[in-house]
């Protein structure tokens, strides 16, 4: 009897422990922690700062951008001179030579960028991440938003412990169903269309189906009542 009782408590106990595990599992913020383990030493240090000893290192999981998307491709995709001419993603002043720049507001040109979660929900302003004038291109070598140090210089201001991998979250998402998402973020694009077809398909089948069954049952009920 007691053994049986004990057995019946086992799943409940397991459930409670699991619940506690899910809710309270937390680890110290690794990116800012002191180096404590010889095995993790290199990885943690490199990921948190982008530097290993005095050398600038590539983040482990996220290589810094070496191509200029949509501009150049091939075996040797990047040339600093070409990039500065064709693309604004690597300039020290990304708004160089834009007419009447002094009289414009960010949202005059970057409309979509002012409407994502960070701006709408968290009320961040552009300059809180992109910095003051002159605003460097995000891939400029010394920009705080350069992928090699973005996590430590920008993300970690709010998200304590942000790693280089974490910083590859796309803040200014392309519109998920758009053609630009298809080229720029294909996984997002295909996930979006898959979910949309699933959503619309399920409802388009089950709503009319259930409604018509209801209608049919109504007629049957009426006929029965008449009989």
């Amino acid at each position: 009897m007691t053994q049986q009782k004990r057995k019946s408590w086992a799943p409940i106990l397991m459930g409670v422990l699991l619940l506690g595990g899910i809710l309270f599992y937390d680890v110290p913020a690794t990116a800012q922690e002191e180096v404590t383990s010889a095995i993790r030493r290199y990885k943690e240090y490199e990921v948190s700062t982008g530097y290993y000893e005095e050398y600038e290192a590539r983040p482990r999981r996220q290589r810094p951008l070496v191509g200029v998307p949509g501009v150049s491709s091939g075996l040797f995709p990047y040339s600093p001179t070409a990039a500065s001419v064709r693309s604004r993603t690597r300039l020290a002043d990304s708004h160089r030579a834009i007419k009447f720049y002094w009289g414009r507001r960010c949202e005059d040109c970057h409309v979509a960028e002012t409407r994502d979660i960070h701006t709408v929900r968290a009320n961040l302003t552009c300059r809180q991440c992109h910095g003051g004038e002159p605003i460097a291109s995000i891939n400029h070598y010394f920009s705080p938003l350069n992928p090699i140090r973005r996590h430590a210089y920008v993300c970690a201001k709010c998200h304590e412990g942000a790693s280089a991998s974490y910083a590859s979250y796309v803040i200014h998402e392309p519109s998920a169903g758009s053609a630009s998402a298809k080229t720029g973020f294909p996984l997002l694009y295909y996930t979006y269309w898959f979910m949309l077809v699933l959503l619309v398909g399920t409802l388009a089948f089950f709503i009319p189906h259930s409604f018509l069954v209801g209608l049919r049952e109504l007629f049957r009920k009426k006929r029965k009542a008449e009989k």
Binding site: R61, Q62, H159, S163, S165, Y166, S168, Y169
Partner: peptide
């Protein structure tokens, strides 16, 4: 997200 990003790239959160 911080723990997940040790295994997956950050854009997986998108």
């Amino acid at each position: 997200p911080l723990i997940i990003c040790r295994m997956l790239p950050g854009w997986s959160l998108n």
